[in-house]
């Protein structure tokens, strides 16, 4: 079912506080793309995107070299909404997500990242 159908049904009255934030994502509350709060986004070079809605354009304009959490704070949208919008931009190849520790990270990858963090903190 298209999640947008929910909002075309006139018998259905959703509470305003729910509808407002997720209207801009056509009712979707999840993204297929894994976007941890600390993940850094990079805008890929080039291209105008006249097809994007205003909320997505704001997210796109804000996201380069920033984390998912920072984008959420700077555009004043809840983290879940920003994830859906960013997920779309990633799927469309407009935005790229940099590395974080994930469930699939190997022990060596984790150790490497934690050691780098430790070195950085000691000289911070």
């Amino acid at each position: 079912m298209d999640p947008g159908d929910l909002f075309d049904n006139h018998d259905y009255v959703a509470p305003a506080r729910y509808v407002r934030p997720y209207t801009i994502t056509a009712g979707r509350t999840r993204s297929k793309v894994d976007l941890p709060m600390e993940a850094t986004l990079r805008r890929r070079p080039g291209g105008f995107h006249p097809d994007l809605n205003p909320a997505a354009l704001r997210v796109l304009a804000t996201c380069d070299a920033r984390s998912v959490a920072e984008v959420s704070a700077l555009v004043s949208m809840p983290i879940g909404v920003v994830r859906v919008l960013l997920g779309d931009l990633v799927e469309q190849g407009i935005v790229h997500v940099e590395a974080t520790i994930t469930e699939s990270s190997s022990k060596d990858e984790r150790i490497d990242l934690i050691e780098r963090t430790l070195r950085g903190l000691r000289t911070y």
């Binding site: 929910l6 959703a14 509470p15 506080r17 729910y18 509350t29 809840p78």
Partner: peptide, 14 residues
Amino acid sequence: EGVDDLDAVPTKAT
């Protein structure tokens, strides 16, 4: 519960 963890729970207050 977080709304972000559920698919659609529009009847609950947020």
